[in-house]
Design a protein around this nucleic acid. Structure first.
Lengths: 130, 130, 130, 130
DNA sequence: GTGGTCTAGACCACC
DNA sequence: GTGGTCTAGACCACG
């Protein structure tokens, strides 16, 4: 299954879908020209409202990541890979910057902060996706 | 001024206040027994509605950080320091974990990820509190 | 009708709602996963302000009794039954303890006190739910 | 010390004082004609605001429990004992009735309720004031 | 339709 | 002066 939704996440569901598709394109798991699952199918398999899927796809169309193929469905746009790679870096860098800046505003010692980050980073490198 | 509010922040105003008070208690800028600025005064100085301040204070009461002294005001609870320190670490660790986990799900190379994090970390250490 | 409000009660309206929901969950009249009546509907049927209902629901969320399902409503949390049963016992036991302790501090003879309690208890048992 | 104040109690401080004086008169710890401690002295010894003590005394005067002796202070009224005994019974009976009725509305089984009450009653009889 | 946030202003009891 | 409650009504994002 390409997509999955985490109701516990504070991100809106449609936004989770948008990001996951962007990430998949950036990683070339989805390739230009390839058809993505239909709104109905995605909605069914994720057990969410079709409107929500439609909204995600609409945003991706607006961003030029997807384009409609008349009578067939939605396909990954040719120029999408580059855009998604840029978006991916921006999203992640912005999150990291926010997180670290909040940590600092909390007056946590920077050494303590660095320690935690290192801890989590290596946890990630070792543990893998778990 | 103890508190400040950023309307651009994606956190709700009341939540910004909650965090700042927690952080101030954790850093012992506010000490147990001390009275915090009144609802009305805070509302005036931040130019926001008193209800918004009251909501933040109410949540802090619920969390056992503040306790009301009838007819006098709200005071920092005796056991608040410990709780706020714990909360602070939890908040930050959770954010970091979320951020890194999303970064990984984006299939960004871990070396690339680590590079960005290091970059932002040292930017923070040099830039200071600015 | 699940909820009812008594303006003559010395408890705040929002608190009456909080307790009634807790009691309903404890008695499994409301079951985990079930959606509770919406803020607007409850406000309408009780003829009170939606904010008051929202406050009650917010507190129940904070206590882990309810959880929000984005765009859909508020549902009873999975672990709510246990919590509500505990809360119910705590609330009642605390009240009883307060009452009896004040009675004792009033230097009322314990035999006299016991007599009154027994009287009220059997009045309750006979009178039934009326 | 005749009086003591519990800030944790949900009763207003002035009301705690009112009740304690009534109870003391009912139990004839304070006897008709006897002078009670002055507002200033009571306020100092309880570390509370003199206004609060004054309000309590004012209410007791209004209820005919205390009467002022010009230039001397406040004394227990001659007819106070009977009134205080009645008040004491009323206060306690009302509390008990409230408590039991709330317990019942919570759909707690009456047998369970009776069990708790018995438990607390005997705890009281054995433990004494502890 | 849903909940969530914020503003505005009133009224209360308490100190 | 303080906090606490309630009402009224607006605006937002989400499904």
């Amino acid at each position: 299954m390409l997509l999955h939704v985490d109701p516990g996440d504070d991100l809106a569901i449609y936004d989770q879908i948008v990001r996951q598709i962007k990430f998949a394109v950036a990683a070339e798991v989805l390739r230009p020209g390839e058809l993505i699952p239909s709104v109905r199918e995605t909605a069914r398999s994720l057990a969410i409202n079709p409107n929500t899927v439609a909204r995600a796809y609409r945003e991706l169309q607006g961003a030029g990541i997807l384009q409609s193929v008349r009578g067939t469905g939605l396909a990954v746009a040719p120029e999408a890979v580059q855009r998604c790679r840029t978006d991916r870096l921006d999203l992640i860098r912005r999150r990291i910057r926010q997180t670290l800046s909040e940590a600092q505003r909390s007056r946590l010692e920077t050494t303590e902060l660095r320690r935690i980050v290192e801890e989590e980073l290596s946890r990630l490198e070792q543990g893998g996706a778990a």
